[in-house]
Simulated assay, not measured.
Amino acid sequence: MQIQNYILVTMALFLIATCKASAEATFREIEFNVYGQYPVRNVTYLPINEAALKSGEEVPEPIEIKTHSLARTGPYSYKGDSHLQFYDSTNKNLVAQLTIPPETGRWLLIFVRNPRYKSQSEQQLKYLVYPFDDSLSHLPSNGLIFLNISGKELDGLLEDKRVNLDAGESEIYRVQESLPINLWARSFDGKKLLPALIKTYKFAPNHRYLIIFFPPVLTGSADLDVRFLSESVK
């Protein structure tokens, strides 16, 4: 329950921020990839919305998105205002929605299962979606960002640098050949520090990296579900 509440608070704060940022959003074109902790299937979206349709665009066919465990999937494109909705392809129910901030036109939409959906399926959407700014200006070549949506506050060392990784995105770290990472999280009772990630990552030149911390796969475990996304920058 603690992890679920932490995730929901994190996502809610981000959604509030993006809604405020989009108050003056205008007609725009957006390119995005998708990623999920678990595979996303039978989910579609319309590549243009009502604002674009009113400008004379033809009604398009829905586009199905799919996620894979080790890489971004896409790209997909969208034209309209900043509000993007996703639907179940089998019953047409709304399963996710988000407001995309105005900063850039390239995003990585990260789908997370809504922990309240099972018990409140009539009131809750199936997925929460975190929009990560995936532009080169935000995550450049030879750069690394940590995205913590695990529900845990992490403390430890990146090589010999002390770090605290709270909810959301970290600063950008410059990477070279390898980086030893030793991160710890408190137990549920708050009395112990448990290893959450002890690993040395290898890096290639002219790539950029995103490490996502998802909640542990096993309830009660301290081992985070960690995803290491690498992309070549030509």
Rank of each mutant, 00 (worst) to 15 (best):
L98C: 02
W107C: 13
S150L: 11
I110Y: 05
F146L: 13
P101M: 12
N93G: 02
F86D: 01
L84S: 03
E177G: 07
L158T: 06
R116S: 14
K126Q: 15
K126M: 14
Q123T: 13
L179C: 11
S119K: 08
L147D: 01
P101A: 15
D134F: 15
K92A: 08
P140F: 14
Y117F: 15
D166N: 04
Y127T: 06
R174S: 12
L154G: 06
L84D: 04
L165V: 05
S121E: 10
L154R: 04
F146H: 04
Y87A: 09
V112H: 05
N114R: 05
Y130C: 04
I100D: 01
R113F: 12
Q176S: 08
E122S: 14
D81K: 00
I172T: 15
E177K: 10
L94G: 02
R106G: 02
S137G: 15
Q124K: 05
K126H: 10
N142G: 05
L154C: 12
K92E: 09
S170C: 08
S119R: 05
A96S: 04
D81I: 11
L147S: 04
I149D: 00
G151L: 07
G156M: 11
G143Q: 12
A96P: 02
Q176R: 09
Q176T: 14
D88Q: 03
N91V: 09
K152H: 14
Y87H: 06
K118R: 08
P140A: 15
E103L: 14
V129E: 03
S170M: 07
G143D: 12
I149R: 01
R106T: 14
V95L: 08
G168L: 07
A96Y: 04
W107A: 09
F111S: 06
L165F: 13
K92Y: 03
F111A: 07
R116L: 15
L94H: 01
L94A: 07
L158V: 08
P115S: 09
L84K: 02
L157W: 13
G105M: 13
H83D: 01
I172Q: 10
F86K: 02
Y127M: 09
V95F: 13
H83A: 06
D81G: 03
K118L: 14
G168T: 06
R162N: 02
Y130G: 00
P102L: 15
T90W: 01
Y117T: 02
P115K: 10
L109F: 10
L157A: 02
N164R: 09
A96V: 05
S150N: 03
R174M: 11
E122C: 07
G143V: 13
I145G: 02
L125S: 04
S137T: 15
G105C: 07
K126A: 15
E171S: 06
S150G: 10
Y127I: 09
S178T: 11
L157P: 00
Q176M: 09
L125T: 04
D81Y: 06
S141T: 11
N142W: 06
E169C: 10
R116G: 00
Q85P: 00
N114Q: 01
I110W: 03
L154M: 12
L165Q: 03
S82G: 10
K118D: 13
Q123D: 10
F111C: 13
L144E: 02
L109I: 15
E171Q: 11
K126S: 12
Q176H: 06
R113W: 11
D155T: 13
S119Q: 11
N91R: 09
R116M: 14
S150A: 12
E177Q: 11
G143F: 14
L139P: 07
G156Q: 07
Q176G: 00
L139N: 05
D166C: 00
K92L: 10
E122W: 03
